[in-house]
Design a protein around this nucleic acid. Structure first.
Lengths: 215, 215
DNA sequence: AAGTGTGAACCTCTTCACAGCA
DNA sequence: TGCTGTGAAGAGGTTCACACTT
Protein backbone atom coordinates (compact mmCIF):
# COMPACT_ATOMS: atom_id res chain seq x y z
CA UNK A 1 0.00 0.00 0.00
CA UNK A 2 1.24 3.44 -0.88
CA UNK A 3 1.45 4.80 2.67
CA UNK A 4 -0.58 7.95 2.95
CA UNK A 5 1.19 11.15 3.79
CA UNK A 6 0.95 13.40 6.73
CA UNK A 7 -0.69 16.16 4.77
CA UNK A 8 -3.37 13.94 3.35
CA UNK A 9 -4.27 12.70 6.83
CA UNK A 10 -4.65 16.28 7.98
CA UNK A 11 -7.02 17.10 5.16
CA UNK A 12 -9.04 13.92 5.63
CA UNK A 13 -9.59 14.90 9.23
CA UNK A 14 -10.79 18.29 8.05
CA UNK A 15 -13.17 16.74 5.52
CA UNK A 16 -14.60 14.59 8.24
CA UNK A 17 -15.56 17.59 10.29
CA UNK A 18 -16.87 19.50 7.29
CA UNK A 19 -19.06 16.54 6.41
CA UNK A 20 -20.54 16.39 9.90
CA UNK A 21 -21.43 20.03 9.50
CA UNK A 22 -23.01 19.54 6.09
CA UNK A 23 -24.94 16.56 7.36
CA UNK A 24 -26.23 18.63 10.26
CA UNK A 25 -27.41 21.18 7.71
CA UNK A 26 -29.46 18.47 6.07
CA UNK A 27 -27.35 17.72 3.03
CA UNK A 28 -26.99 14.12 1.91
CA UNK A 29 -24.57 14.43 -1.01
CA UNK A 30 -21.60 16.59 -1.78
CA UNK A 31 -19.37 17.31 -4.79
CA UNK A 32 -15.61 17.57 -4.71
CA UNK A 33 -15.69 21.24 -5.65
CA UNK A 34 -17.90 21.99 -2.66
CA UNK A 35 -15.54 20.31 -0.25
CA UNK A 36 -12.72 22.10 -2.02
CA UNK A 37 -14.09 25.55 -1.39
CA UNK A 38 -14.86 24.75 2.25
CA UNK A 39 -11.36 23.39 2.80
CA UNK A 40 -9.42 25.91 0.71
CA UNK A 41 -8.14 23.24 -1.63
CA UNK A 42 -8.79 22.26 -5.21
CA UNK A 43 -11.43 19.85 -6.42
CA UNK A 44 -8.77 17.56 -7.86
CA UNK A 45 -7.05 17.43 -4.51
CA UNK A 46 -10.24 16.49 -2.72
CA UNK A 47 -10.85 13.69 -5.20
CA UNK A 48 -7.31 12.39 -4.84
CA UNK A 49 -7.50 12.47 -1.06
CA UNK A 50 -10.75 10.55 -1.08
CA UNK A 51 -9.34 8.08 -3.57
CA UNK A 52 -6.59 7.40 -1.07
CA UNK A 53 -8.99 5.91 1.44
CA UNK A 54 -10.67 3.80 -1.21
CA UNK A 55 -14.05 5.44 -1.25
CA UNK A 56 -15.70 6.24 -4.56
CA UNK A 57 -18.40 8.67 -5.50
CA UNK A 58 -20.56 8.71 -8.58
CA UNK A 59 -20.67 11.32 -11.31
CA UNK A 60 -24.38 11.68 -10.75
CA UNK A 61 -24.43 12.52 -7.07
CA UNK A 62 -20.85 13.12 -6.05
CA UNK A 63 -20.17 11.61 -2.65
CA UNK A 64 -22.81 10.27 -0.29
CA UNK A 65 -22.14 12.11 2.95
CA UNK A 66 -23.07 9.31 5.34
CA UNK A 67 -20.97 6.77 3.50
CA UNK A 68 -18.01 9.08 3.20
CA UNK A 69 -18.14 9.93 6.90
CA UNK A 70 -18.11 6.23 7.67
CA UNK A 71 -15.16 5.55 5.36
CA UNK A 72 -13.24 8.43 6.88
CA UNK A 73 -13.96 7.32 10.43
CA UNK A 74 -12.98 3.75 9.68
CA UNK A 75 -9.79 4.98 8.19
CA UNK A 76 -8.79 7.66 10.68
CA UNK A 77 -10.04 6.25 13.94
CA UNK A 78 -9.39 3.16 15.95
CA UNK A 79 -12.71 1.37 16.48
CA UNK A 80 -11.44 0.08 19.83
CA UNK A 81 -10.77 3.64 20.92
CA UNK A 82 -7.49 5.35 21.73
CA UNK A 83 -6.38 7.03 24.91
CA UNK A 84 -4.26 10.10 25.42
CA UNK A 85 -2.43 11.53 28.42
CA UNK A 86 -1.91 15.24 28.88
CA UNK A 87 0.95 16.74 30.87
CA UNK A 88 0.90 20.31 32.12
CA UNK A 89 -2.43 21.51 33.46
CA UNK A 90 -1.90 25.23 32.97
CA UNK A 91 -4.19 27.44 30.93
CA UNK A 92 -3.30 25.67 27.73
CA UNK A 93 -3.70 22.20 29.19
CA UNK A 94 -7.07 23.10 30.64
CA UNK A 95 -8.19 24.61 27.35
CA UNK A 96 -7.42 21.36 25.61
CA UNK A 97 -9.07 19.23 28.27
CA UNK A 98 -12.17 21.39 28.01
CA UNK A 99 -12.17 21.20 24.26
CA UNK A 100 -11.91 17.42 23.96
CA UNK A 101 -14.03 16.57 26.95
CA UNK A 102 -16.49 13.98 25.71
CA UNK A 103 -16.26 15.17 22.15
CA UNK A 104 -14.75 12.19 20.37
CA UNK A 105 -15.86 8.82 21.66
CA UNK A 106 -13.00 7.01 19.97
CA UNK A 107 -10.29 9.32 21.23
CA UNK A 108 -10.30 10.55 24.78
CA UNK A 109 -7.87 12.17 27.17
CA UNK A 110 -7.99 9.79 30.09
CA UNK A 111 -5.32 11.14 32.39
CA UNK A 112 -3.69 14.49 33.10
CA UNK A 113 -0.48 15.15 35.00
CA UNK A 114 1.17 18.06 36.72
CA UNK A 115 3.85 18.82 39.26
CA UNK A 116 1.73 21.33 41.16
CA UNK A 117 0.05 19.65 44.16
CA UNK A 118 -2.94 21.98 43.80
CA UNK A 119 -3.67 20.64 40.36
CA UNK A 120 -3.47 16.93 40.99
CA UNK A 121 -5.85 14.32 42.34
CA UNK A 122 -8.79 16.23 41.00
CA UNK A 123 -11.18 15.93 38.09
CA UNK A 124 -10.73 18.64 35.50
CA UNK A 125 -13.23 18.87 32.67
CA UNK A 126 -14.02 15.22 33.23
CA UNK A 127 -10.41 14.07 33.34
CA UNK A 128 -8.66 12.73 36.41
CA UNK A 129 -5.34 14.39 37.30
CA UNK A 130 -2.29 12.82 38.91
CA UNK A 131 1.20 13.79 40.04
CA UNK A 132 3.79 13.44 37.27
CA UNK A 133 5.73 11.01 39.40
CA UNK A 134 3.10 8.41 38.61
CA UNK A 135 2.99 9.13 34.89
CA UNK A 136 4.93 6.19 33.54
CA UNK A 137 3.06 3.60 35.56
CA UNK A 138 -0.37 5.09 34.85
CA UNK A 139 0.29 5.35 31.10
CA UNK A 140 1.32 1.70 31.10
CA UNK A 141 -1.57 0.55 33.25
CA UNK A 142 -4.19 2.29 31.17
CA UNK A 143 -2.65 1.38 27.83
CA UNK A 144 -2.36 5.00 26.74
CA UNK A 145 -0.55 5.46 23.45
CA UNK A 146 -0.74 9.22 22.86
CA UNK A 147 0.94 11.98 24.83
CA UNK A 148 0.10 15.69 24.83
CA UNK A 149 2.80 18.00 26.10
CA UNK A 150 1.67 21.37 27.49
CA UNK A 151 4.57 22.11 29.81
CA UNK A 152 7.08 24.96 29.43
CA UNK A 153 9.99 24.53 27.04
CA UNK A 154 12.48 23.64 29.73
CA UNK A 155 10.62 20.56 30.90
CA UNK A 156 9.37 19.26 27.58
CA UNK A 157 12.26 16.99 26.66
CA UNK A 158 12.22 15.30 30.03
CA UNK A 159 8.48 14.72 29.86
CA UNK A 160 8.86 13.35 26.35
CA UNK A 161 11.53 10.94 27.52
CA UNK A 162 9.24 9.58 30.20
CA UNK A 163 6.45 9.20 27.69
CA UNK A 164 8.72 7.28 25.38
CA UNK A 165 9.75 5.09 28.27
CA UNK A 166 6.11 4.43 29.10
CA UNK A 167 5.47 3.24 25.57
CA UNK A 168 3.60 6.14 24.01
CA UNK A 169 3.61 5.96 20.19
CA UNK A 170 2.65 9.51 19.26
CA UNK A 171 3.12 12.92 20.84
CA UNK A 172 1.37 16.22 20.29
CA UNK A 173 3.86 18.82 21.42
CA UNK A 174 2.94 22.42 22.28
CA UNK A 175 6.28 23.30 23.78
CA UNK A 176 8.39 25.47 21.48
CA UNK A 177 11.26 23.00 21.22
CA UNK A 178 12.06 20.16 18.83
CA UNK A 179 11.98 16.98 20.84
CA UNK A 180 14.72 14.41 20.37
CA UNK A 181 13.08 10.99 20.34
CA UNK A 182 13.50 7.59 18.73
CA UNK A 183 11.91 7.81 15.33
CA UNK A 184 9.31 5.15 15.89
CA UNK A 185 7.47 7.79 17.92
CA UNK A 186 5.48 10.19 15.78
CA UNK A 187 5.73 13.81 16.90
CA UNK A 188 3.46 16.61 15.79
CA UNK A 189 4.57 20.07 16.84
CA UNK A 190 2.08 22.87 17.35
CA UNK A 191 4.37 25.77 17.84
CA UNK A 192 2.45 28.93 18.62
CA UNK A 193 5.50 31.15 18.61
CA UNK A 194 6.55 30.10 15.13
CA UNK A 195 3.00 30.37 13.88
CA UNK A 196 2.64 33.90 15.19
CA UNK A 197 5.97 34.91 13.75
CA UNK A 198 4.93 33.59 10.36
CA UNK A 199 1.73 35.59 10.50
CA UNK A 200 3.66 38.70 11.50
CA UNK A 201 6.07 38.23 8.61
CA UNK A 202 3.40 37.73 5.98
CA UNK A 203 1.19 40.44 7.42
CA UNK A 204 3.95 42.84 6.48
CA UNK A 205 4.59 41.27 3.09
CA UNK A 206 1.05 40.54 2.04
CA UNK A 207 0.21 44.17 1.40
CA UNK A 208 2.81 44.37 -1.36
CA UNK A 209 2.05 41.06 -2.89
CA UNK A 210 0.27 41.10 -6.24
CA UNK A 211 -0.12 37.40 -6.56
CA UNK A 212 -2.41 37.58 -9.57
CA UNK A 213 -0.45 37.06 -12.82
CA UNK A 214 -3.44 35.30 -14.21
CA UNK A 215 -1.44 33.96 -17.19
CA UNK B 1 13.69 38.59 -5.14
CA UNK B 2 12.68 34.96 -5.04
CA UNK B 3 9.97 35.29 -2.42
CA UNK B 4 10.69 33.04 0.52
CA UNK B 5 8.24 30.31 1.31
CA UNK B 6 6.08 29.70 4.28
CA UNK B 7 8.08 26.69 5.36
CA UNK B 8 11.38 28.48 5.27
CA UNK B 9 10.00 31.31 7.41
CA UNK B 10 8.87 28.76 9.98
CA UNK B 11 12.29 27.20 10.17
CA UNK B 12 14.05 30.55 10.35
CA UNK B 13 11.91 31.41 13.34
CA UNK B 14 12.94 28.14 14.93
CA UNK B 15 16.63 28.76 14.26
CA UNK B 16 16.30 32.14 15.88
CA UNK B 17 15.09 30.61 19.11
CA UNK B 18 17.66 27.84 19.01
CA UNK B 19 20.39 30.42 18.59
CA UNK B 20 19.24 32.40 21.60
CA UNK B 21 19.47 29.20 23.56
CA UNK B 22 22.95 28.38 22.32
CA UNK B 23 24.09 31.88 23.01
CA UNK B 24 22.76 31.62 26.56
CA UNK B 25 24.81 28.46 26.92
CA UNK B 26 27.90 30.45 26.06
CA UNK B 27 28.47 29.35 22.47
CA UNK B 28 29.62 31.92 19.94
CA UNK B 29 29.69 29.89 16.74
CA UNK B 30 27.60 27.13 15.28
CA UNK B 31 27.79 24.74 12.31
CA UNK B 32 24.95 23.88 10.01
CA UNK B 33 24.92 20.25 11.13
CA UNK B 34 24.46 21.34 14.75
CA UNK B 35 21.46 23.49 13.91
CA UNK B 36 20.21 20.62 11.79
CA UNK B 37 20.19 18.14 14.62
CA UNK B 38 18.52 20.61 16.98
CA UNK B 39 15.84 21.41 14.42
CA UNK B 40 15.31 17.92 13.03
CA UNK B 41 16.39 18.95 9.55
CA UNK B 42 19.40 18.33 7.35
CA UNK B 43 22.57 20.36 7.25
CA UNK B 44 21.97 21.22 3.61
CA UNK B 45 18.55 22.55 4.47
CA UNK B 46 19.91 24.75 7.21
CA UNK B 47 22.49 26.17 4.84
CA UNK B 48 19.89 26.86 2.16
CA UNK B 49 17.58 28.52 4.62
CA UNK B 50 20.32 30.78 5.89
CA UNK B 51 21.36 31.56 2.33
CA UNK B 52 17.83 32.79 1.76
CA UNK B 53 18.25 35.67 4.18
CA UNK B 54 21.60 36.61 2.72
CA UNK B 55 23.81 35.74 5.65
CA UNK B 56 27.04 33.84 5.08
CA UNK B 57 29.18 31.76 7.38
CA UNK B 58 32.75 30.67 6.95
CA UNK B 59 34.11 27.16 6.57
CA UNK B 60 36.43 27.78 9.46
CA UNK B 61 33.91 28.79 12.10
CA UNK B 62 30.49 28.08 10.65
CA UNK B 63 28.06 30.83 11.59
CA UNK B 64 28.71 33.54 14.15
CA UNK B 65 25.75 33.28 16.50
CA UNK B 66 25.39 36.98 17.30
CA UNK B 67 25.53 37.97 13.67
CA UNK B 68 23.11 35.30 12.58
CA UNK B 69 20.63 36.25 15.30
CA UNK B 70 20.81 39.82 14.09
CA UNK B 71 20.28 38.85 10.46
CA UNK B 72 17.32 36.67 11.41
CA UNK B 73 15.75 39.37 13.54
CA UNK B 74 16.18 41.99 10.85
CA UNK B 75 14.57 39.66 8.40
CA UNK B 76 11.71 38.27 10.47
CA UNK B 77 10.76 41.19 12.65
CA UNK B 78 9.54 44.67 12.06
CA UNK B 79 11.95 47.08 13.74
CA UNK B 80 9.08 49.50 14.37
CA UNK B 81 7.17 46.74 16.18
CA UNK B 82 3.93 45.02 15.30
CA UNK B 83 0.71 44.78 17.25
CA UNK B 84 -1.74 41.94 17.55
CA UNK B 85 -5.31 41.70 18.80
CA UNK B 86 -6.67 38.55 20.41
CA UNK B 87 -10.34 37.62 20.40
CA UNK B 88 -11.78 35.07 22.80
CA UNK B 89 -10.45 35.24 26.35
CA UNK B 90 -11.21 31.67 27.38
CA UNK B 91 -8.60 29.22 28.62
CA UNK B 92 -6.84 29.18 25.30
CA UNK B 93 -6.86 32.94 24.89
CA UNK B 94 -5.50 33.40 28.39
CA UNK B 95 -2.81 30.82 27.81
CA UNK B 96 -1.63 32.75 24.79
CA UNK B 97 -1.76 36.11 26.52
CA UNK B 98 0.27 34.67 29.37
CA UNK B 99 2.76 33.15 27.01
CA UNK B 100 3.47 36.27 24.97
CA UNK B 101 3.23 38.76 27.80
CA UNK B 102 6.31 40.93 27.50
CA UNK B 103 8.25 38.24 25.72
CA UNK B 104 8.89 39.77 22.32
CA UNK B 105 9.49 43.50 22.30
CA UNK B 106 8.82 43.79 18.58
CA UNK B 107 5.57 41.85 18.61
CA UNK B 108 3.02 42.38 21.32
CA UNK B 109 -0.61 41.58 21.90
CA UNK B 110 -2.00 45.00 22.69
CA UNK B 111 -5.73 44.34 22.93
CA UNK B 112 -7.99 41.44 23.80
CA UNK B 113 -11.71 41.12 23.13
CA UNK B 114 -14.58 39.04 24.39
CA UNK B 115 -18.35 39.05 24.52
CA UNK B 116 -18.51 38.09 28.20
CA UNK B 117 -18.94 41.23 30.35
CA UNK B 118 -16.96 39.56 33.14
CA UNK B 119 -13.91 39.32 30.97
CA UNK B 120 -13.78 42.81 29.54
CA UNK B 121 -12.44 46.15 30.75
CA UNK B 122 -9.78 44.39 32.70
CA UNK B 123 -6.06 43.82 32.38
CA UNK B 124 -5.19 40.18 31.73
CA UNK B 125 -1.56 39.17 31.77
CA UNK B 126 -0.66 42.74 30.98
CA UNK B 127 -3.15 43.15 28.16
CA UNK B 128 -6.22 45.38 28.27
CA UNK B 129 -9.52 43.71 27.38
CA UNK B 130 -12.52 45.24 25.63
CA UNK B 131 -16.00 44.26 24.47
CA UNK B 132 -16.02 42.85 20.94
CA UNK B 133 -18.39 45.60 19.85
CA UNK B 134 -15.46 47.98 19.94
CA UNK B 135 -13.08 45.71 18.08
CA UNK B 136 -13.07 47.32 14.67
CA UNK B 137 -12.54 50.82 15.95
CA UNK B 138 -9.83 49.83 18.44
CA UNK B 139 -7.92 47.82 15.87
CA UNK B 140 -7.99 50.80 13.55
CA UNK B 141 -7.08 53.31 16.24
CA UNK B 142 -4.12 51.32 17.47
CA UNK B 143 -2.89 50.34 14.03
CA UNK B 144 -3.04 46.64 14.81
CA UNK B 145 -2.30 44.43 11.83
CA UNK B 146 -2.46 40.92 13.28
CA UNK B 147 -5.50 39.08 14.61
CA UNK B 148 -5.56 35.99 16.84
CA UNK B 149 -8.80 34.04 16.87
CA UNK B 150 -9.50 31.93 19.98
CA UNK B 151 -13.29 31.79 19.79
CA UNK B 152 -15.39 28.66 19.20
CA UNK B 153 -15.88 27.42 15.65
CA UNK B 154 -19.30 28.96 15.26
CA UNK B 155 -18.14 32.51 15.79
CA UNK B 156 -14.81 32.38 14.03
CA UNK B 157 -15.90 33.44 10.55
CA UNK B 158 -17.77 36.43 11.86
CA UNK B 159 -14.81 37.55 13.94
CA UNK B 160 -12.55 37.09 10.94
CA UNK B 161 -14.83 39.24 8.82
CA UNK B 162 -14.65 42.06 11.34
CA UNK B 163 -10.89 41.76 11.48
CA UNK B 164 -10.68 42.01 7.72
CA UNK B 165 -12.92 45.04 7.81
CA UNK B 166 -10.69 46.63 10.42
CA UNK B 167 -7.68 46.22 8.15
CA UNK B 168 -5.83 43.33 9.74
CA UNK B 169 -3.30 41.75 7.33
CA UNK B 170 -2.65 38.42 9.00
CA UNK B 171 -4.65 36.06 11.19
CA UNK B 172 -3.61 33.25 13.49
CA UNK B 173 -6.66 31.02 13.72
CA UNK B 174 -7.20 28.44 16.45
CA UNK B 175 -10.81 27.71 15.56
CA UNK B 176 -11.23 24.39 13.76
CA UNK B 177 -12.70 25.91 10.60
CA UNK B 178 -11.20 27.18 7.37
CA UNK B 179 -11.89 30.89 7.20
CA UNK B 180 -13.10 32.40 3.95
CA UNK B 181 -11.27 35.68 3.48
CA UNK B 182 -9.89 37.86 0.69
CA UNK B 183 -6.53 36.43 -0.22
CA UNK B 184 -4.51 39.48 0.61
CA UNK B 185 -4.98 38.43 4.24
CA UNK B 186 -2.56 35.75 5.34
CA UNK B 187 -4.14 33.05 7.49
CA UNK B 188 -2.26 30.51 9.57
CA UNK B 189 -4.40 27.74 11.03
CA UNK B 190 -3.41 25.99 14.23
CA UNK B 191 -5.96 23.25 14.34
CA UNK B 192 -5.65 21.19 17.50
CA UNK B 193 -8.29 18.67 16.49
CA UNK B 194 -6.57 17.85 13.22
CA UNK B 195 -3.20 17.70 14.91
CA UNK B 196 -4.44 15.26 17.52
CA UNK B 197 -6.12 13.12 14.92
CA UNK B 198 -2.90 12.95 12.95
CA UNK B 199 -1.01 11.85 16.02
CA UNK B 200 -3.65 9.23 16.77
CA UNK B 201 -3.43 7.89 13.23
CA UNK B 202 0.33 7.65 13.14
CA UNK B 203 0.53 6.32 16.68
CA UNK B 204 -1.33 3.29 15.38
CA UNK B 205 0.74 3.02 12.21
CA UNK B 206 4.13 3.88 13.58
CA UNK B 207 4.52 0.58 15.38
CA UNK B 208 4.43 -1.32 12.09
CA UNK B 209 6.58 1.06 10.19
CA UNK B 210 10.10 -0.08 9.43
CA UNK B 211 11.20 3.07 7.78
CA UNK B 212 14.84 2.07 7.48
CA UNK B 213 15.60 0.71 3.99
CA UNK B 214 19.02 2.20 4.27
CA UNK B 215 19.69 1.71 0.52
C1' DA C 1 40.30 17.86 7.25
C1' DA C 2 36.09 19.86 7.81
C1' DG C 3 32.86 23.46 6.62
C1' DT C 4 30.15 26.51 3.51
C1' DG C 5 27.61 27.81 -0.94
C1' DT C 6 25.16 25.99 -4.65
C1' DG C 7 23.92 23.75 -9.36
C1' DA C 8 21.62 19.74 -10.39
C1' DA C 9 19.21 15.58 -9.33
C1' DC C 10 15.60 13.83 -6.89
C1' DC C 11 11.37 13.31 -4.77
C1' DT C 12 6.85 14.67 -3.15
C1' DC C 13 2.71 17.04 -3.69
C1' DT C 14 -0.54 19.56 -6.62
C1' DT C 15 -2.88 20.59 -10.71
C1' DC C 16 -4.19 19.68 -15.48
C1' DA C 17 -6.83 17.52 -18.64
C1' DC C 18 -9.47 14.07 -20.34
C1' DA C 19 -11.71 9.34 -20.67
C1' DG C 20 -15.67 7.23 -18.86
C1' DC C 21 -20.05 7.31 -16.81
C1' DA C 22 -24.94 8.44 -15.20
C1' DT D 1 -24.13 17.96 -19.41
C1' DG D 2 -21.49 17.78 -15.25
C1' DC D 3 -19.35 14.92 -12.38
C1' DT D 4 -15.64 11.30 -10.82
C1' DG D 5 -11.15 8.73 -11.30
C1' DT D 6 -6.63 9.09 -12.85
C1' DG D 7 -2.31 9.21 -15.99
C1' DA D 8 0.74 12.73 -16.97
C1' DA D 9 2.69 17.17 -16.48
C1' DG D 10 4.11 20.70 -13.44
C1' DA D 11 5.69 23.05 -9.05
C1' DG D 12 7.85 23.14 -5.03
C1' DG D 13 10.81 21.48 -1.59
C1' DT D 14 14.78 18.59 -0.19
C1' DT D 15 19.02 16.28 -0.66
C1' DC D 16 23.29 15.16 -3.20
C1' DA D 17 27.68 16.08 -4.36
C1' DC D 18 31.36 18.81 -5.20
C1' DA D 19 34.12 23.17 -5.96
C1' DC D 20 35.98 26.36 -2.94
C1' DT D 21 37.82 28.25 1.48
C1' DT D 22 40.47 28.22 5.79
Amino acid sequence: MPSISDKVIGRLSLYQRLLYRLKAEGMTNVYSHQLASLSRGSAAQVRRDIMAIGYSGTPAHGYVIDELIKSLSDFLENPAGQKAALVGIGNLGRAILAYFSGRRPRLSITAAFDTDPNRVNRVIHGCRSYPVENMVEIIREKGIDIGIICVPAGQAQQVANSMGLAGVKGILNFAPVRLQLPDDIYVEDLDVTTALQKVAYFARRESTKNKEVKK
